[in-house]
């Protein structure tokens, strides 16, 4: 009996998950459908860009600098064995532009801005602000969800680009300024190996996808949260966990599609 119980529990979880994904997808399409209003009144998006983008700047810049510095240090130690320290720039740049920039920025974004979005919307629901808006004949998806969605989608690639740029600067600081790798080969080899379309554009596409996914998860969890204190805190945790896993899984899928040929 215990086996049957376990199997049916697994089945229940799967059915539940698929159902939630379906609801989230419907929520996503509604958000796109009702986006017209906030794109016409763009200051609504600008207000949200402040709380998602600008407020995430410090964490992104600091994290990017340190990740780049670590890459510089570790990369140098490894490349030294093969006598190709001059390829340090390539390693740091490709690592950041292709993978670490989009992924790390998205993970930080999920825990900084995503969780804040979930908590904010969950609290709006708990304090009946969303019902109030509906009673005022204002569609809450158009007025609350859509501006935050677009702010997330716009700020994510910018944050990822900043992360990569700052990270490359960090790698430069450690590699060239501190260790003394030749500055010319650091930059020229980097430029020769990093392709704009293959590497940088693909990195940007990745970060746009991550931005969309993280924002939709955060907004959906907030909108779907039970209107209680435990409900909101549970939803906030779920936002961070779900979106982190989604980022890493999607990163694998996107990498497999984009860079398999190379």
């Amino acid at each position: 009996m215990a086996v049957v119980k376990t199997i049916s529990a697994i089945g229940h979880r799967i059915v539940d998950t698929v159902w939630r994904i379906g609801v989230a997808a419907r929520f996503f399409f509604l958000t796109l459908l009702y986006s017209g209003n906030c794109l016409r009144r763009f200051h609504l998006v600008i207000k949200e860009l402040f709380s998602t983008g600008v407020m995430s700047l410090i964490i992104i810049i600091v994290a990017g600098l340190f990740v780049g510095m670590v890459l510089g240090l570790q990369g140098y130690e490894t490349l030294k064995r093969y006598g190709s320290e001059s390829a340090l720039g390539v390693m740091v740049a490709l690592g950041l532009v292709r993978e670490l920039g989009p992924v790390m920025a998205a993970l930080l974004f999920a825990s900084r801005a995503g969780s804040a979005m979930t908590a904010e919307i969950g609290l709006m629901k708990a304090t009946e602000q969303i019902s109030a808006m509906e009673m005022m004949a204002v569609n809450p998806i158009a007025r609350i969800v859509a501006p935050r969605f677009w702010a997330g989608v716009i700020s994510m690639p910018l944050l990822a680009a900043l992360f990569s740029a700052v990270g490359i600067f960090g790698g430069y600081l450690v590699g060239v300024v501190q260790i003394g790798v030749d500055e010319g080969s650091f930059w020229s080899q980097m430029q020769a190996a990093v392709d704009f379309r293959e590497d940088i554009m693909n990195g940007i596409i990745k970060s746009v996808v991550f931005g969309t996914v993280v924002t939709v998860i955060a907004l959906f969890e907030g909108f779907d949260a039970p209107p209680t204190a435990e409900g909101v805190s549970g939803a906030t945790t779920r936002t961070v966990v779900t979106s982190s896993l989604a980022i890493l899984m999607l990163d694998f899928v996107l990498t497999a599609i984009m860079f398999r040929g190379a």
């Binding site: 402040f50 983008g53 680009a161 740029a165 020769a192 392709d195 704009f196 940088i200 940007i204």
Partner: peptide
């Protein structure tokens, strides 16, 4: 608010251009 957001967007686009020009081969 507009000023901060403007600075953020300019910095982000600046980073993109820097990546394209200085890091990439554009």
């Amino acid at each position: 608010l507009d000023l901060w957001v403007g600075m953020f967007v300019v910095a982000g686009i600046g980073a993109l251009v820097m990546l394209a020009m200085k890091v990439g081969n554009l």
